[in-house]
Design a protein around this nucleic acid. Structure first.
Lengths: 187, 187
DNA sequence: GCAGAAACGGAACGGTCGGTCCACATCAGG
DNA sequence: CCTGATGTGGACCGACCGTTCCGTTTCTGC
């Protein structure tokens, strides 16, 4: 898990961008199992070039999703700062799940199996307390069932990801489940 | 997907049993990704012997889970025949999910990805109409939210499987989500 | 435009998987 | 027993993956 410096040479910088763009496309649509040979071909470069820029596949994945993980943290923070607790919790869930539904790679990353990545573990370590806070606020406000814990919310997210993975033909199928669940835990 | 006849010779019959037992153990605990070499070693035989009894890995899987799929159908049928519609639906879900939670291989088989198996597709083709019926009955009885469809129930199951896969350290974690969801769709 | 550093591309490596093959062991009927 | 049919085991095959290596190409500072 090495941090790769941005290259100085013009062609190298260009290829790095091409690689990240190709990886983003492929990982988004086909998940993290995509071959690095595919990424290289899609970017119009050789495999060797991939490994020059990213020592391992994990490094490529980490570099690619670093920004999205940051966004996930930011999203949770924004929701915590919002006023209405129920709406804040729901908005966070909707937005977080919407992004995961449109990105198969991100989904694989956020699942427990993806915790082999330091960056993912760090992200969760930051986000989880924020969700705790969202849940506590909603409890205090009396808009969330008192026995609904932040672990319940975490498992809800896991379940929704399972639904997304199972319904690639209907990327919005998960919304139905989310809505029904929320109906059950409100007030 | 060939049907393998039960062998006549004594040693062959014994090895077949050993293989099925080993496969059951390994698939239950570690999922369908277990290597056939592992199955062979666990059974104390060579790989060649595996392929004599089961021409492909899929044949082994199909032979192993045929009985469990039958049981799944029987479970659904029983629930349809039961009187109380809400209880029937809930009992079916609880029992079906309990079995899947205790068997990682069965879980992989019942997920959409497992539908490459004819036997699984057949099982679903039989079970789905039965679930339709359970849902319809509950609607008629007025114990299930009118807008909760059998597809919602199917997605609930998919979500629960996702939770099970994500919480191997707590095989009962899914029950919490099931309970909360059911609270939301009752009456 | 030249020289050397930097980057490139893709053949090749080591590992794993499902599956095949065949010399050898084992069983069952006469 | 003994003999032929049946079953066995594990070396081996081909495909695929992440990764390495190195001869060749491309860039950059002078």
């Amino acid at each position: 898990m090495t941090t790769t410096p941005t290259p100085t040479r013009k062609d190298a910088a260009r290829n790095r961008s091409l690689l990240l763009a190709a990886a983003e496309d492929l990982f988004r649509d086909a998940g993290l199992d995509v071959t690095l040979k595919d990424v290289a071909r899609h970017a119009g470069v050789g495999v060797g070039t991939v490994y020059r820029h990213f020592p391992t596949k994990d490094d490529l994945v980490a570099a690619l999703f670093a920004q999205q993980l940051e966004a996930e943290i930011e999203r949770a923070r924004k929701s915590v700062e919002a006023g209405d607790s129920w709406e804040a919790l729901v908005d966070y869930l909707k937005e977080s799940m919407r992004l995961q539904s449109s990105n198969r790679g991100l989904r694989a990353l956020m699942c427990p199996a993806g915790s082999v990545f330091d960056s993912v573990r760090e992200c969760k370590a930051v986000v989880n307390p924020l969700i705790d806070q969202l849940v506590k606020s909603a409890h205090a406000q009396g808009t969330l069932r008192p026995d609904c814990t932040s672990r319940d919310i975490a498992l809800l997210q896991v379940g929704l990801v399972g639904i997304m993975d199972a319904t690639p033909e209907d990327p919005n199928a998960y919304r139905r489940h989310l809505a029904l669940f929320l109906d059950g835990v409100r007030v």
